[in-house]
Design a protein around this nucleic acid. Structure first.
Lengths: 252, 252
DNA sequence: ACACCGTTGTCAACGGTGTTGCGCAGATCC
DNA sequence: GGATCTGCGCAACACCGTTGACAACGGTGT
């Protein structure tokens, strides 16, 4: 319990206008500075970039000073992630039809995730429960509502979109972090092994081995995003046909 | 430090099936034993269960002995993950139509992921490139082929299914690992915050706050799996209408 | 039969991680 | 001007994956 309710007299978050100054060496931190330093080192891309010690280095302060402003590293991570979510939201233009709003959200999320891979990969299975997250929820819910889903259908489809996008960009970020140099070798190995597989045991793989090797990350990304949109469209169409009794059709 | 190497004559931990070999104390490891011990501790569910030191404890041997059989922890993890993939494949019955084969794969993957959450969450953005992985690829490719997709379309849709399922079960596993006791409190907090949000700024959230709180993990899971199937069906239908020139329709 | 040698468990240790308690410098308050 | 409070540096802790040196065991060549 420190970060937000910390300094009653001083401006808590603003750019610390000139005075504010150093105490002993030249540091004097603030949550703002720490978050920005975190983003800076997360943007460096290296997998182990985001450590407390490296953060202290970037701040020119002792690493443990961070703990005067955030309870632990996880709380800092959540705050940083919420900041990046803001970046995503600001990149989404107004006036798009709901499908394009989902696409814009996906594109923006991917761009930001590839910009701060360490953050995105750590958040792939998390939820921040902070300000910008609610804006994203509102955005997705607005899209599914415009598509024609309401009530429980809207709720569960929001979760489908939110969770899927989080996982999608998390995977991309993790891949970017993984094996700085081994990645190219990895891709090559894949296509080699696909081609050298036993045709008797694996006829399907043999049949499309060439195409498998040529699939791109962006191609998969696009198909996965379109799948989310398609699923919403289809469910909305189903419910439009049978207007009453939306309790009924439940697959499986 | 002493606990494990204390009893030279007595069998340390495992059932020690009479023959059992000892060299000096009573151990003598094998890759098989190590993998099984890994699965045992991964099944315990705790997030930090799968460490080399705990593995040594489970084996009744020095932790570093593992390195005589696996290059590093990652290689062991891959081997263990491939083993669990085998469990999934064995749970899929024969003679299902392609949609049900996808569903069976998803259900089996989820069940195994929740059984060994530490493994599943670590593999959410990985690929094993081992025997059972090829069997899964073959299975998914068979399904999309039966759906009517061929060539590059089959390849990219395989990746959609494979990557999405991996991410999906990885998220569920990570959630299971997360915050053993804080999870219930987390859910409660969510529904509370949804209901107490500003209705002006977040009308969509306000409208479905009640339903949002009632969404279940299994509900989301089902919708996400059905979305994959729907996407394949729709793409196959599109291509059936315009048989030639499958280069054309590319969204966005 | 015996010396050799590769295999493999043990031990100590290294460098890395997140985190905590202690002490003190500087700013703030009365 | 003294008391108090805030926040940083420092040392240290527990844990992590991993490595190198050593020793005991098993099999093998002569």
């Amino acid at each position: 319990m420190s970060n937000t309710a910390s300094n009653p007299p001083a401006p808590p978050t603003a750019a610390a206008p000139a005075r504010a100054r150093n105490r002993r060496s030249g540091t004097q931190l603030s949550p703002e500075m720490i978050i920005e330093a975190s983003l800076r080192i997360a943007a460096r891309g290296s997998a182990d970039a985001f450590t407390v010690r490296r953060l202290g280095e970037e701040l020119g302060a002792d690493p443990t000073a961070v703990y005067r402003h955030f309870r632990d590293k996880d709380e800092l991570l959540l705050e940083v992630a919420d900041r990046t979510l803001g970046e995503v939201l600001d990149s989404i233009p107004e006036g798009l039809v709901w499908q394009d709003r989902i696409r814009a959200l996906a594109d923006g999320s991917l761009a930001v995730a590839l910009k701060y891979p360490a953050v995105a990969s750590a958040m792939a299975s998390r939820t921040t429960r902070r300000a910008n997250e609610f804006r994203v929820v509102e955005l997705i819910l607005g899209a599914v509502a415009e598509a024609g889903l309401t009530g429980a259908e809207a709720a569960v489809h929001y979760r489908m979109v939110g969770d899927s996008l989080l996982a999608l960009v998390g995977q991309r970020a993790a891949y970017l972090l993984f094996a700085p140099e081994a990645r190219a070798a990895d891709e090559a190995a894949w296509s080699r092994e696909y081609r050298s597989v036993d045709p008797e045991a694996f006829p399907q793989i043999t049949a499309v081995a060439g195409e498998l090797a040529q699939v791109t990350q962006d191609g998969v990304y696009r198909v996965r995003v379109e799948a989310l949109i398609t699923a919403i469209e289809r469910r909305a169409a189903e419910l439009a046909v049978l207007p009453a009794r939306d309790e009924s059709a439940q697959h499986r």
